[in-house]
Computed example of a mutant assay.
Amino acid sequence: MLIRAEESALVVIDMQERLVPAMQAPARTIANTRRLLQSAHCTGVPALLTEQYPQGLGATVPEIKKVAGPAPILPKMHFSCMEDPGFAEAFRALDRQQAVLAGMEAHICVVQTAEGLVEEGHDVFVVSDATASRTLESEHACLERLRASGVTVVTTEMVIFEWLGRAGTAEFKELLPLIK
C-alpha cells in the first residue's frame, strides 16, 4: 500500500529536551524528523506533535519546533497518543486514513500509539530512521512487534517519495535538496 499525501497525517511523538539525549542515534532521528516535517508541509500533509509530561521531560527540542510550522504541539500523559482525549480528537478531526509515525520512545509511546491507531482501523506506517529508543534491543523488539500487528515499517525517503508521487513537480523541486 502506498503512502498518499492526501490520505496521510504525520505524528511526531515526544521529541523532547530530556528524552532526545538518551536515545540511540539522536542526531539521525532529529534530522529525519525535520525532513519529514518539511516534506509534510510542502505536500499538504497535516502534522501533530506531542509532548509526554512536558513539566518533567521538557519541551519539544528547538530543531523540531523550528520546522513544525503551524502543527499543534499537544501535551499528554498517556503513553498511547490515542488514549489521550485531546490528541485523539485532534487526530480524528484531520479525517485521514493513514498515520505516519516518528518519535520516541519507539518501544513505549510509538508502539502503543501505533497499536491504538490499528485498533481504530487506520493504516499505520512507522518511520524506522526517525524513531528511537534508549537501546537498540528495544528498537528492534518494537519493530518486530509492529510488523506482527500489521504496521508497515518504512524509512524517511520512502515516505517523502511516496508523498511526492512523481518527479518534475514544484514540490519535488522544493524537496530535492532534502533528499540529495
Results as ranks from 00 to 15, higher is better:
residue 71 A to Q: 10
residue 47 A to Y: 10
residue 130 A to Y: 08
residue 71 A to R: 08
residue 76 K to M: 11
residue 135 T to R: 13
residue 18 R to M: 07
residue 148 A to M: 12
residue 75 P to R: 05
residue 171 E to H: 13
residue 159 V to N: 02
residue 66 K to Y: 05
residue 176 L to I: 03
residue 88 A to V: 05
residue 7 E to M: 05
residue 150 G to C: 12
residue 85 P to M: 11
residue 20 V to I: 15
residue 26 P to H: 03
residue 9 A to E: 02
residue 150 G to K: 06
residue 13 I to K: 06
residue 64 I to C: 12
residue 112 Q to N: 12
residue 160 I to A: 07
residue 157 E to C: 11
residue 93 A to G: 13
residue 108 I to K: 02
residue 73 I to R: 02
residue 6 E to D: 14
residue 83 E to T: 04
residue 177 P to D: 11
residue 76 K to S: 05
residue 57 L to M: 08
residue 2 L to M: 13
residue 68 A to K: 02
residue 24 Q to L: 13
residue 162 E to W: 02
residue 35 R to S: 11
residue 111 V to N: 08
residue 135 T to H: 12
residue 62 P to V: 03
residue 59 A to P: 01
residue 64 I to D: 09
residue 51 E to C: 04
residue 72 P to W: 12
residue 22 A to N: 10
residue 77 M to I: 10
residue 180 K to S: 11
residue 147 R to T: 13
residue 92 R to W: 04
residue 35 R to I: 00
residue 174 E to Y: 10
residue 8 S to V: 05
residue 104 M to H: 01
residue 55 Q to F: 02
residue 71 A to F: 06
residue 101 L to S: 08
residue 75 P to W: 08
residue 119 E to C: 00
residue 130 A to I: 01
residue 73 I to W: 05
residue 161 F to H: 12
residue 105 E to N: 05
residue 141 A to W: 08
residue 136 L to Q: 14
residue 56 G to N: 06
residue 64 I to A: 09
residue 167 A to L: 12
residue 117 L to I: 01
residue 3 I to A: 00
residue 161 F to R: 07
residue 135 T to D: 11
residue 37 L to N: 10
residue 175 L to F: 10
residue 48 L to K: 05
residue 127 V to K: 06
residue 145 R to F: 14
residue 64 I to H: 10
residue 97 Q to Y: 02
residue 37 L to F: 11
residue 35 R to N: 12
residue 83 E to K: 15
residue 125 F to Y: 15
residue 89 E to N: 08
residue 91 F to Y: 14
residue 53 Y to G: 00
residue 170 A to G: 01
residue 130 A to F: 06
residue 26 P to L: 03
residue 100 V to Q: 02
residue 64 I to M: 09
residue 66 K to D: 15
residue 140 H to C: 07
residue 96 R to M: 12
residue 160 I to L: 14
residue 45 V to L: 06
residue 113 T to L: 03
residue 73 I to T: 14
residue 124 V to T: 06
residue 9 A to P: 01
residue 80 S to R: 00
residue 40 A to N: 07
residue 44 G to H: 08
residue 15 M to K: 01
residue 86 G to H: 12
residue 17 E to H: 09
residue 162 E to H: 09
residue 75 P to I: 06
residue 133 S to N: 08
residue 122 H to F: 03
residue 120 E to H: 09
residue 59 A to H: 11
residue 146 L to S: 04
residue 106 A to S: 14
residue 120 E to R: 15
residue 26 P to C: 03
residue 149 S to Q: 14
residue 134 R to E: 09
residue 158 M to F: 10
residue 166 R to W: 01
residue 148 A to Q: 14
residue 169 T to Y: 10
residue 131 T to R: 06
residue 55 Q to S: 09
residue 41 H to T: 13
residue 59 A to I: 01
residue 146 L to F: 12
residue 35 R to K: 15
residue 50 T to M: 05
residue 16 Q to W: 00
residue 4 R to Q: 13
